[in-house]
Nucleic acid binder design. Structure first.
Lengths: 199, 199
DNA sequence: GTCTGAAAGCGACTGCTGTTCGCTTTTATT
DNA sequence: AATAAAAGCGAACAGCAGTCGCTTTCAGAC
């Protein structure tokens, strides 16, 4: 904010957060791609080119959101992954947190995820990288479950991807067949039955 | 092509096909969104505004591709669905065809699917509608499988969506853990184990 | 045979976009 | 008081999808 002095890294980060917080409402209301940089700057109460001092491109503004969210999600999952209980139970808990998280942020997460699909390919690769950290965590749990003998010998990464990718569409579907909660539980049920060792 | 005479509906359709065929190479080479309407018209050997006589918007050019492909896929699936064998076997065969189809058109389908994600929301809804026909076919097979007693009582639409949505990322993943064929088979395996009646 | 209306085709033009540039304002330091 | 550097800005830029008014062409009416 002050003009002549250099901002510290932290101040810059705070300012980015502050700016994003001010403009996210507009994204939710009229859509990210339908909001021009002029409007974004207006909403943030700053000049158009000042915006570029905090976000290198327009896409980066939206990426900022997912960076934040994925950090939270990964942290929560990491805490669960360290618990001293069977891997399959930890996996269930992580996915439960995942579902709760999706539901809590449903409206904004859903809308912005749809918008994120429309980012430039380059930006989507950035996003993908951020997702990998989380995906690897799930993969680890599946791997542990296999070693513990609760899961069949499936490819852990494939299973992890399958799990994450089946849950997202549940929240986003245009033809729901029940509450999100119900659909999520059934999806998880099918998945776990699919990888569990047959008794 | 002829200037003064009115084109029949069929001629118009042929011309659309012809134009698309001429320009799709450019989409595959430098990307749909990176190709401007000027370039597309150039490649098609027609004027820019003539292009608009055959496709109402730029998005519609890409939608045309999926309309075609989905028609083929749905037809093939319909033929299988009518065979006189158990539903679970028919479902396996449909998905096998689906996989073969994805692999045969892999490079173009993959690239253009990624591009399709970036279409305007309105255009994506169009695409979604076209997908529903196919989704409903799968749903029907799952439903039959349940009635025949091979599948557990799962929600057929949810299962259908889950199935389709798990196969696509297999082809598109940036971190493959085997050949597409292997990954697809393992995915199918997990899914079928997940919905089969336990023996 | 020629006239005419309507369709096919076209490139200049429009209004908008994300991004850049050159400039002003502010302030900590010398 | 002078300086340098950072923060902030709106005008300007290049490029885009889509539109408009015009030209060219020809089937059918007379």
């Amino acid at each position: 904010m002050p003009k002549g002095i250099r901002l510290t890294e932290e101040e810059q980060a705070n300012r980015r957060h502050e700016i994003f917080h001010k403009v996210v409402k507009v994204f939710l209301k009229k859509g990210f791609h339908e909001t021009s940089m002029r409007e974004i700057a207006e909403q943030a109460g700053i000049g158009k080119s000042t915006l570029y001092d905090y976000f290198k491109t327009k896409d980066e503004i939206l990426l900022y959101f997912f960076e934040d969210q994925l950090n939270d999600l990964t942290e929560a999952a990491q805490r669960i992954a360290l618990q001293n209980i069977p891997a399959d139970e930890r996996l269930r808990r992580v996915m439960k947190t995942h579902m709760e998280f999706l539901q809590a942020n449903k409206s904004s997460f859903m809308k912005l995820s749809l918008e994120a699909q429309r980012l430039k390919l380059e930006s989507q690769n950035e996003l993908q990288k951020k997702r990998h950290t989380y995906q690897d965590l799930i993969r680890g749990l599946v791997g542990e479950g296999i070693r513990e003998g609760t899961f069949r010998k499936v490819d852990p990464l494939l299973a992890a991807r399958m799990l994450i990718n089946t849950l997202l569409p549940v929240v986003f579907t245009s033809r729901p067949t029940g509450t999100a909660q119900e659909m999520m539980e059934e999806t998880m049920d099918i998945f776990f039955k699919g990888i569990e060792v047959c008794e």
